[in-house]
Design a protein around this nucleic acid. Sequence first.
DNA 1: GAGCACTGC
Length: 653
Amino acid sequence: MLLPKKGNIPTPLDVQRKRLPIYQAKPQLLNQLRQLPCAILIGETGSGKTTQIPQYLYEAGIGRQGVIAITQPRRVAAISLAGRVAEETRTSLGKLVGYTVRFEDVTSSETKLKFMTDGMLLREAIGDPLMLRYTVVVLDEAHERTMHTDVLFGVVKTAQRRRRELNKVPLKVIVMSATMDVDLFSDYFNKSPVLYLEGRQHPIQIYYTKQPQSDYLQAALITIFQIHQEAPPSHDILVFMTGQEEIEALARTCRDISKHLPDGCGPMLVIALYASLPPAQQLRVFQPAPKGCRKVILSTNIAETSVTISGIKYVIDTGMVKSKRFNPDSGLEILAVQRVSKAQAWQRAGRAGREDSGLCYRLYTEDEFDKLIPMTVPEIQRCNLSGVILHLMALGIPDVLNFDFMSKPLPGAIQAAVVQLELLGALEKKEQQVTLTALGKKMASFPLEPRYAKAILLSPDFSCSEEVLGIVSLLSVDTVLYNPPARRDEVLAARRKFISSEGDHMTLLNIYRAFKKVSGNKEWCRENYVNSRNMGLVKAVQAQLREICLKLNMKLESCGSDTVSVRRCLAHAMFVNAAELQPDGSYVALDSHQSVAVHPSSVLFQAKPAYVVFNELLHTSRCYMRDLCLVDAEWLVDAAPEYFSRKLRHAKS
DNA sequence: GAGCACTGC
């Protein structure tokens, strides 16, 4: 999706392959990999490990009885790597080399090298916990520690052990990482040997500030213009910042200042980069600036891993990042600006040295750098675990509560997940043992958060499956609403006709129904400020969910205009996320008794209904409920009588 | 009357 156009490099592929640093190490590497059941491979960027190792294994006949899987945290990476390796092996994609990501499977019975997202391998494992179709699993980018990779660590380790015990074909596990927390990986995989690969990173000069900076934005501005006055105009600058608002504000300031620079100072092209930008605007970062003009890119952490921009000579690192944290006690997600880790600071600096030597200006002192935490806290320790626990149960992991995670989640987080899953009826606790219920098993077959899976599974009882499938699909994508701030009034006017007094879910459903009525007409999307790309994704998600429903023999009906049924169904699935209006006009979340507020983006912002269910709580300036649905108190009590006799009594007292 | 980093099934 976001790949810069490649220049034509005339060097033949086999010559290119032999020039990679890894080529020198091939014989020793293969010798070791052949013998080891598990290996940790540390290689700097540019070592060629991801494209070469799978080919080396295949050429040497290692794991030929089955398929070699190579996992990636991101779809684009899985797809483009598969393309590259197919090219190098002179085969067409989908034959010897293929890839599998959600909604796309380019493999065949001939496929021996299969690139896939880590989430995809995890999902496959539900039907095949021993991963018998694979002889080798390569977990790439392990240092990123995504939730999926962390769960996979345990799943492959278990599969490997079980296969040995059952005398099945052995499973080889290769963990590839770019960083130094080698011991953690090695210890986890039974003290596996660590193999190091030389990289092709160019030297980067690091500069720190002499004094701590109280205003990193001001410091960034000054640094940008200092570099601009001194460096040749072909040297591009990449600035790491925390979010959209901050980036757009600094971009405006830079553009204003660059108009009034003294003679001799060249022009400057300032480009903002963050994930919620439309793809066409994101692609602008790859266009070279006009001759004599300097490119300055102001980016979020999207440029740390997901988007690679060539030609960056200077990196400016504010040392800050916006990230989500999860509090298991309150069930609250907190989105806040915080300091980066050392590993993250190095990752950012590395973006300056991809083609040539580079420079990195850290807008903090060396002393402050020393105090940063060494590694970013892995996602598994920062998120709600109910989906993970359900998934592990579905894999038949015997003692889920003591699952062998590489980094243990907080005990409270696992407990909170178990409680949630019990309330949803997915788990049962019997004599200190948790078991999966029949409902829980069905829930796990959906690629969804457990409560959304529950809503779908309940929907036949209310004869509104079509509607619930639509709503859940809408909630699965980022957003289908397009809200350009400059055209606020037009957006509000266009949206008015879809607004439902019953809440945000029903409003979204109205938009989706209208979208389907015009068969996804692009012009209609533009006129109504609807993101047509994400709407397309909604359709794909819905198709996937519908297929799972059909496999489960569910009866899919539409309730037509009977929206009460839909809201009753949502109330039954989301009763844990209910809030009650208080006499003073505020809201209290019934589960945690926490004071919460309606997010101003909700269509119910001014309505003040007595009871609502909400999708999520997000703590920013206050604790906000997002995406609300109006419900009746009786429905909630009906959904979980015991639970609410407790909660409502507490709330009233 | 707010503002939301990034992925993924």
